[in-house]
């Protein structure tokens, strides 16, 4: 893909994520991790090549159906992208409201999740009054609230100390155990070596697999037909 008329940021990227797999996405700063995730959460269209999400070809899917696909993907943005004028509660509730979920159901789920992420006391706080780590947890809670089939997290531990980072990773692992496919972009050597998960490594717009088969981890087998996410070959 490319931004506008700029150079091609991603060139040779071909992979298929097996449902229920857990991958780290690594690469030096500027390698294109965020760009790859943008393709995956449908913020960008590839300038060429094929993107398949939940067995649907993005290029041929009618625009009207995209929101329903997006609702199955939870995203933790690198810059959080919380809505500053809404409380932590309303931020986390947003994906459910957008999907038209009943207000009573929303209250129950959001209360529960905020308590679980240790933000029970900050439900009414607006993001600017929260610490970086607290904001990050609100962002993570928002990405989890709709129980997505695919979770994409861009540097979800960038703003927290190592101990909290590890705790958050356990949270993702927990989610993964319940069936969600997880991709986490990170710089943290510590996390990557601690959680022995397969790695998607980006270098100069080219994707290199480092599969480390683990219990619960995926193999990235491209022949799997139940792939939640796939990418065609792009040269």
């Amino acid at each position: 893909m490319r931004y506008g008329t700029g150079p091609e940021v991603l060139r040779e990227v071909t992979f298929t994520l097996k449902p229920g797999s857990f991958h780290f996405l690594t690469g030096r700063s500027g390698a294109g991790k965020s760009s790859l995730l943008k393709l995956m959460y449908l913020a960008h269209r590839p300038s060429r090549g094929l993107v398949t999400l939940f067995d649907e070809d993005i290029a041929t899917l009618p625009r009207k159906r995209l929101p329903f696909l997006r609702r199955r993907v939870g995203v933790v943005f690198q810059e959080f992208r919380l809505l500053n004028h809404l409380s932590a509660f309303d931020n986390v509730a947003l994906p459910l409201r957008v999907a038209g979920v009943k207000e009573s159901t929303i209250r129950k789920h959001v209360d529960e999740l905020l308590a679980w992420t240790g933000l029970g006391d900050h439900m009414d706080a607006r993001p600017p009054t929260l610490s970086g780590g607290q904001q990050q947890r609100v962002a993570i809670a928002r990405s989890l609230i709709s129980r997505p089939d695919l979770l994409l997290a861009d540097e979800p531990t960038g703003n927290v100390d190592d101990a909290l980072g590890v705790r958050l990773l356990y949270l993702f692992e927990e989610l993964n155990r319940m069936g969600t496919t997880v991709v986490i972009a990170t710089h943290s050597e510590n996390l990557v070596s601690r959680f022995k998960k397969p790695i998607l490594h980006l270098e100069d717009g080219v994707l290199i697999h480092h599969d480390r088969v683990e219990a619960g981890g995926g193999t990235g087998d491209p022949r799997d037909s139940r792939k939640p996410f796939g990418r065609g070959k792009r040269q």
């Binding site: 959460y41 449908l42 913020a43 009207k64 929101p67 329903f68 696909l69 997006r70 609702r71 995203v75 992208r81 809505l83 947003l94 994906p95 957008v98 999907a99 928002r142 709709s146």
Partner: peptide, 16 residues
């Protein structure tokens, strides 16, 4: 724009 984008990305339909 930022808010519109976030709503869009978390699956809001245009009508919403």
């Amino acid at each position: 724009q930022d808010v519109v984008e976030v709503l869009h990305l978390i699956g809001a339909e245009d009508a919403y």
